[in-house]
Design a protein around this nucleic acid. Sequence first.
DNA 1: TCCATTTACGCGAGCGGTTGCACTATCCCG
DNA 2: CGGGATAGTGCAACCGCTCGCGTAAATGGA
Lengths: 341, 341
Amino acid sequence: MVTSHDVARLAGVSQATVSRALTSSSKIRPATKARVLAAMQELNYVPHAGAQTLRTRRSGVVGVVVSDLANPFYAQMLDELTRVLSLAGYRAVVWNAGGGSHADALQAIGENAVDGVIFTTATASSPELLEAVDRNRPLVLINRDVEGVACDRVIGDNAAGGRAVADFLCERGRTEIALISGPAEATTSRDRTESFLARMRERGHDVPEHFRFDGAFSHDAAAQITRRVMTREVRPDGIFCANDNMAFGALDTLREFDLHADDCYVIGYDDVDMASWASFSLTTVRQPIREMAATGGRLLIERINDPERPPQTVTYAPVMIERGSTAGAISRRGSFPRARG
Amino acid sequence: MVTSHDVARLAGVSQATVSRALTSSSKIRPATKARVLAAMQELNYVPHAGAQTLRTRRSGVVGVVVSDLANPFYAQMLDELTRVLSLAGYRAVVWNAGGGSHADALQAIGENAVDGVIFTTATASSPELLEAVDRNRPLVLINRDVEGVACDRVIGDNAAGGRAVADFLCERGRTEIALISGPAEATTSRDRTESFLARMRERGHDVPEHFRFDGAFSHDAAAQITRRVMTREVRPDGIFCANDNMAFGALDTLREFDLHADDCYVIGYDDVDMASWASFSLTTVRQPIREMAATGGRLLIERINDPERPPQTVTYAPVMIERGSTAGAISRRGSFPRARG
DNA sequence: TCCATTTACGCGAGCGGTTGCACTATCCCG
DNA sequence: CGGGATAGTGCAACCGCTCGCGTAAATGGA
């Protein structure tokens, strides 16, 4: 391995000067800097990241915690995050879902392996998280509102989104609605569904227990639930899914049964890219995923550079996007269910 | 920040002994180890990753280069990779696509910031890559066959897959085929399409120039191309897309036009999760994505632990998966949801 | 031309761990 | 009960880089 000493020897300067040629802050004569850089080039010198981290307490790495990359919402989020972070000169290490990824990420920040962490997972608080916040670790929560925790976050107004869906459905005369929510721990799902239910109740169209389901944010679970509910005696004329991924599952099942928007509206949440594909044409509530990701990245970097900055919360207003899955006349067109297995 | 010295003081041992309590290899009396661990616990001690890397020349991090997380193929690949790597005690840093990500990743390995790199991008060779291989850096290529480069790789037999598609189509009597290939640099696309074209020619059904397109692995580009080709005087009765993502685009357009498998088969490549969704029901060539990812992870770790191990190539045989997008006998049904532009 | 001021570079002390070596305490066996 | 082997711990030298301090060189003004 070639070190700064080797470069120094070749360039005829001290090792410290080699270091100065790298850190733009320190003063060095242009001529010598050029000589050093030439020597680096010749030797193919690359500074040792670990050594730099050890001295500077900066790793140039940030952690990103996602919960399921098979879910396009997280994939798009990560896509944008890696993009903006690398533009800002940071690398991104990714923790994927399951089990201990939160604790792992917080441990990594303790190890000085990462300069900060972005959580995109929608689960609630945890002792480790609170402790990390207490220690003033640079943390950003995207799409996850933990009350009373002083840290940066960027969120969509899920409660407003849920109400918008209720209003939309009622105004179209669809009031027999099935609700497929996400996992109980996910605050995003809770906010969306609770405000949805409250608004439906306000409007006099309470959603009965037997029309409420937990789809765990999963395509297959939602498809299954839809199958169950659409083969019942009393069927809904609309389904609200707490995210797009589940809505795709619902649409898949309806398509199997040869059912249409006429028969049953489907509404999702997030507006991932696929929602606009012709095969789905999904009515949904738009969250500006890429913008939220970019903002999250920005907030984290600002905080890394200024740990004393007061925490900020950036909120995005939801926007109903109307597409084919809620198009068509209000009246039902019979002839169902007709399952194909 | 609490260091091993602090722990040593509290536990009444030397700093070196604290270190020994961490590295399982070194000998230490169980009693003292327990005392040290207790002290660590009390002080919330976490070893400094950078310092460890500096001494041991191991970072416990591996790099993963992907080219587009909005493409579910890469998302699933990364999903599995992060899973197996974290199981093996490694963190994963992700480079995303565009421009310099290859060079960045190879630089990171030079910085000792990562112990190895997995490339999942299907582009051809590059000088930097060859140099890194020369230096015996731990590298694994997934889904990317660079000839004459001595490094580990895991690939699907793309040529066999392309031929299988040609045979499948011809045996069904579909011979007016449009081909939507990936970007020219992608060896995977080249292998699939060239062998496909060769086999079609062998069978006496040459694919004319005006039925060959470059869809750049992109959903929207493929949708666009399909729109163009299906509004011509002479239309194909089948479309072979070099990956599933483009096939979804083709299906979307066919659906807009209210066309069905009767009118035009669609075949993709990869068999991502979505391909089996009822809305697509896409006939495709299966690559065992998750298994390939797991194998790639394993190969990299083996090589990190034994740099002298001769490079291995693991090849997976392709499997045609037949679904609705090539089910000719099924009668037309009304399209749902009906697209509204 | 000479002195005061600025600028550029070398020196060396760490950053927080790991590990070879030396030393002591302990053990086993005759 | 004594001597050699062994296990457990401390000491100190690094790993490669950054940066404060001090000095030599360069600069500017009179």
